[in-house]
Design a protein around this nucleic acid. Structure first.
Lengths: 64, 64
DNA sequence: ATTTTTTGTAAAATATACTTGACATATTGT
DNA sequence: ACAATATGTCAAGTATATTTTACAAAAAAT
C-alpha cells in the first residue's frame, strides 16, 4: 500500500523525491519505491526520513 | 546502542528471545542482535515486534 | 509549444539483513 | 551441585534492500 503520509509530509516541506533522497543519502529510486509502498526499508532509513520531514515513526510508518 | 526499551517490553510480556523470535517469525539470533543494538532491522520486522509486544514504533524504536 | 523537472519503472550488480548450525557463558529451577 | 533454559557470539550461506544506469511519461515552468 502506498505511503501517502510520507508523500504528503514531503510535499509539506516542498521537497522532490530527488532532494529527499540526497538529504537522507539514498537513491531517488529508493524513495520512490518506499512511497509506492512495495518495499520494506530498514528502520535506520525510516528514522532518517522522519527526521528530514520533521515527523516520527508512528506518524509516517505506523498504520492502525 | 542497546535497545533496552525492547528488552524491557519483552520482559513485561515474560517472553524469551526464542519465544519472541517464533512469534514474529525470525531467528533467535536476529532478536538478540536487535536488542544488542548493532543491527539495522527492516521496518516490517520492527512493526511485527511492536505488535507482539503491544507497543508502537515510537515506543520501541524512536530515540530523542 | 517546448524545455525542464519530477515521477514511474526495469534489469543487473552490490551491500547488507537474516538464517542456520554450533559452542560458550550466564541464569534459573530442583 | 546438577540440569535446564536463556543469552551472547561467530562464521558461512541465502534472501533481499539499495545502487546504478537507463528510458518513458507526467507535471511544471518559461
Amino acid at each position: 500500500m502506498k505511503n501517502l503520509k510520507m508523500k504528503s509530509a514531503r510535499a509539506a516541506k516542498d521537497l522532490s523525491q530527488q532532494q529527499l533522497a540526497e538529504i537522507v543519502g539514498v537513491s531517488r529510486q529508493t524513495i520512490n519505491a518506499i512511497e509506492k509502498g512495495d518495499y520494506n526499508p530498514t528502520i535506520k532509513l525510516c528514522r532518517d526520513i522522519c527526521k528530514a520531514l520533521d515527523k516520527t515513526l508512528d506518524e509516517l510508518f505506523w498504520d492502525e
